[in-house]
């Protein structure tokens, strides 16, 4: 081998930056979370677990955990399943798949903040086309379909749609209402994320050898569903695991839509962790509690990724 010392110069910048920018802050956040330090203070005192105690007992932070969990639990599965369905649909098309692919991928590329504002107007109670579309549909086919009147147990006088029509077009104020805000934000999250998952699944689908499907057919897997169960789904295992992890980590970090659209409200129903860190630590200068939230947040992410690695080793490897 060669005795050059070049490698030191090659790896030193990366190592120094990794330590300063990624590893040291972990310890800093951990340290601050046990103090009452606020940015600008000259001194601080150790307060032990007080910050964590607050986090799990004060209503605000309990709501924060709820909002974050709701968002993640709704957005991840739906955007993954939608991505998979879209990918399989596109994969089976004879023509036009590229156009749909471009359209579905647009939200991934577009600046999320701008799109959040666009959604705000789209869903605006008086200016938005969604509510005007609903209002114009009172008594018509739209009411029948979207009011679920086609389900046998829905009374066509009592459905949400019929009630709104009867009460002077009282359709939801999507982002301003306590019972709809979190779901609306979730919807935007799904809208933004599923195209990304779709593209990853498309790549996964093309890597499945065609002979496997033919073997399945010869083995007697007749229906599309049987073939999906026998070949497609297991072969997509690694892709699914990856898609789920990356989507989970991304949805945990939701911030843009919350900050611009709801500011955590109404009554903290959309108060997700990243927004909480921002609001507490930056806007209210409560650095120590922000650090505690940071630690919990990082903890979640690390547990998730280790879990993923573990599952990869155990299950999906072949």
């Amino acid at each position: 081998m060669h005795n050059s010392k070049a490698h030191i110069w090659f790896i030193a910048p990366a190592i120094i930056l990794m330590i300063i920018i990624l590893i040291f802050p972990l310890f800093l956040a951990g340290g601050i979370s046990f103090t009452d330090y606020n940015l600008g203070n000259k001194t601080f005192e150790w307060v032990g677990l007080e910050n964590y105690d607050k986090m799990f007992n004060r209503k605000t932070y309990v709501k924060m955990i709820w909002a974050t969990a709701t968002y993640v639990i709704v957005v991840v599965p739906i955007s993954v399943v939608l991505g998979l369905c879209a990918a399989m649909l596109l994969n089976s098309l004879r023509f036009g798949a590229d156009i749909y692919k471009t359209i579905f991928f647009l939200p991934v590329m577009a600046t999320l903040l701008a799109m959040a504002i666009a959604w705000e107007f789209t869903l605006h109670p008086t200016l938005g086309i969604v509510n005007s579309f609903l209002a114009n549909g009172c008594g018509g086919v739209r009411e029948f379909i979207l009011g679920f009147h086609w389900l046998p147990w829905v009374d066509s006088q009592e459905s949400w749609y019929a009630v709104a029509c009867a009460n002077n077009m009282d359709f939801p104020y999507w982002l301003k209402q306590k019972n709809t805000a979190i779901w609306t934000v979730c919807f935007i999250g799904i809208w933004q994320a599923f195209g990304f998952n779709m593209v990853l699944y498309l790549a996964g689908l093309t890597s499945i050898p065609r002979e496997l499907y033919q073997a399945a057919e010869m083995d007697g897997a007749k229906s599309t569903w049987e073939q999906f169960k026998l070949v497609t789904w297991p072969m997509l295992g690694p892709t699914t695991l990856f898609v789920v992890t990356i989507t989970t980590i991304r949805t945990f970090q939701v911030f843009d839509t919350i900050e611009i659209l709801t500011k955590g409200g109404p009554s903290k129903t959309t108060y997700v962790m990243m927004y909480a860190i921002f609001e507490k630590a930056i806007q209210q200068n409560l650095t120590s509690i922000g650090a505690a939230i940071t630690v919990v947040f990082i903890g979640f992410i690390l547990v998730l990724t280790f879990f993923q690695r573990y599952v990869i080793e155990k299950r999906v490897h072949y």
Binding site: M18, I21, L22, I301, L302
Partner: peptide, 19 residues
């Protein structure tokens, strides 16, 4: 490197901001 791959920079934004 593999360990640092697990750390989301947005997640540690606060200590970075303090620094």
């Amino acid at each position: 490197v593999l360990f640092c791959l697990l750390i989301p920079v947005h997640g540690i934004a606060l200590p970075l901001y303090v620094m």
